[in-house]
Simulated assay, not measured.
Amino acid sequence: MYLADHTWEELGDYFDRESLAIVPVGSTEQHGPHLPEATDHLIAEAYAREAAERTGYLCTPTVKIGVSPHHRQFHGTMWVDAPAFRDYMTSLARNLTYHGVDRIVFVNAHGGNVQHLREVGRRLHDAGDAYALEWMWDESIPDLVNDSFERNGPHGGPKETAMIQYLRPDLVREDRLEAARDDGWADFDAEAEQARRNGSRTFYDSVENSANGVFGDQTDATAEKGEELFEAATDQLVELCEWLAERDRSALLPADHV
């Protein structure tokens, strides 16, 4: 059920019987020479709306700009400062609680948002307003993601490429896949010396490790792999929503002081 398609009367019927909302959250930022800057919010919205379709739960409009200053050197990247993002998402969530929602799933497709959505969830939980969870599609199916590609990567790599090949093939620059690989960091390793020393992460911006902002080998991606990943992760999201919806409200409130 997509909120923006319905009248206020129809939405009142939903809030009378349900208390869960799905909120897709992404970014608008560089994803290399082969993928659109819409990549993250397209993926987030696709998962959220599919889960809402399968479950009947409410899906809100997508938050399309997130915390992305680490991609700022690349043309067109948009971002908001982290404190502003946290405050905005907290306010958005409390808008939903005003209508009776007390459990929220942030369907997130941008790594830069993760810690901030967790903080939003903390605020809402501590105040007793709502129980909000941050969900990342690839983290729900890590083994399948890793087994699907020879050289995976966290940004603009084969997993995201496969997803957009499946969801929006018209937006993939197929003739730029090799350039994306060759001018990026194809053999990405989070523990490599160029990324970490003595246990400390040594870079702030993606351009410091990848000239085109890409990590992983995109030439291993296909729409068929994207579909397999999409179906598997959607199953995980549906199960999460159903689990959360069934929990007693008392189990969602902060525990008393010992």
Rank of each mutant, 00 (worst) to 15 (best):
M1E: 01
Y2N: 09
W8M: 09
E9R: 15
Y14V: 03
D16N: 10
P24V: 05
S27H: 09
H31T: 10
D40A: 04
A44W: 04
A44R: 05
A46I: 12
Y47G: 06
E50V: 02
A52C: 04
C59N: 02
V63T: 14
I65M: 04
G66T: 14
V67L: 06
Q73G: 09
F74K: 00
F74I: 00
F74E: 00
H75M: 09
T77Y: 02
V80I: 12
D81Q: 10
A84V: 10
F85K: 08
Y88V: 06
A93W: 02
R94S: 07
G100R: 03
N108Q: 08
H110A: 12
L117K: 11
V120I: 00
G121W: 00
H125W: 15
A127R: 15
A130E: 01
L133W: 01
E134Q: 14
W135N: 01
W137V: 09
W137I: 10
H155P: 04
T161W: 01
A162Q: 08
L167S: 03
L171S: 08
E174M: 10
D175C: 06
D175I: 05
E178W: 02
A179P: 04
G184P: 11
D187R: 11
A190Q: 12
E191D: 15
A192C: 10
N198G: 13
S200H: 14
T202M: 06
D205M: 08
N209R: 11
S210T: 00
F215C: 09
G216R: 09
A232Y: 15
Q236P: 05
W243E: 12
D248M: 05
L252Y: 06
V258E: 12
